[in-house]
């Protein structure tokens, strides 16, 4: 549908929904099979990571422009991909998680309305 009407013809909430789906695909559905940590995700880790991703998926987000939305999601994707490569027992795991959640939360609290 978006291919037919183009980005400009897509309502902002739908566009954000689309970006959320892309985010889920990039950071959760895809794994780097060649990376020791990202290549094998234990059940505990999956539960934990999924709960965070689920939180992001269900957080209402608002952006001024589509470019701004895309930029933010790309930034979060990068943080989440780095997070996927950190062993769960390392302190960096927690800090990166907080960084991701904070980035999303900060945007929600300060984000401009559509």
């Amino acid at each position: 549908m978006m291919k037919v009407v183009g980005e400009e013809g897509t309502a902002m909430p739908d566009f954000v929904q689309y970006l959320k789906a892309e985010f889920l695909d990039e950071v959760y559905l895809q794994q780097d099979a060649f990376h020791d940590v990202d290549g094998a995700s234990s059940a505990d880790r999956q539960k934990h990571v999924f709960s965070v991703i689920h939180g992001i998926m269900t957080t209402p987000l608002t952006f001024k422009t589509r470019d701004n939305a895309r930029q933010e999601f790309l930034r979060w994707q990068q943080i989440a991909k780095d997070w996927n490569r950190i062993p769960m027992e390392k302190p960096e795991f927690k800090t990166t998680e907080e960084k991701l959640v904070h980035a999303v939360e900060q945007h929600r609290s300060t984000g401009e309305e559509n």
Partner: peptide, 15 residues
């Protein structure tokens, strides 16, 4: 509440 078609189905269906 996440397992609903309208949660992700819209954009994914398009893709």
């Amino acid at each position: 509440n996440w397992i609903r078609p309208d949660a992700v189905c819209g954009p994914v269906a398009m893709w």
